[in-house]
Design a protein around this nucleic acid. Sequence first.
DNA 1: GCCAACGTTGGC
DNA 2: GCCAACGTTGGC
Length: 153
Amino acid sequence: MNYWLFKSEPLAFSIDDLEKSENQTTYWDGIRNYQARNFLRDTAKPGDLGIYYHSNSEPPAAVGTVTVVSEGYPDFTALDPNSDYYDPACTEEKPVWYMVDIKLLKKFKKPVTLPEIKSKDILANCRLVAKGNRLSVFPVTEEEFNEIVRLGE
DNA sequence: GCCAACGTTGGC
DNA sequence: GCCAACGTTGGC
């Protein structure tokens, strides 16, 4: 069982978009960073839990919880020339990029803002608050996950 | 809009 | 293999 933080710009795909999706499930596409790719391909498993986080929003905030509902599998948007995420280096045989499916568990009653997260000692070592963190998916500890959930309820 | 941090690219 | 240039992310 792993715990993750999934970061998304709400203008691109918000938690409300996820809520409106069929079965409140979506494929987490567009990851084009090798470290994040490795997490999705090699480590993420069905049943894993995650925090859904809105970046580039006012304020930046954790807004809910999700669960992983698939193994990592090739991100087909990389093969689609019409996709923003098209990567001409990818083929069906060598997909390079991977994604997982995630399902909404619960929207927080109140968003847990980045300043609030930064104010908690328990979350001081979370990668989210690490300087220069740019990964759009990364692991968090069970304690960090539970603390953010507690703050959001 | 600015800029720090970081990943990637490509010339050498 | 080095590293400068460039693009992107994301908080502020």
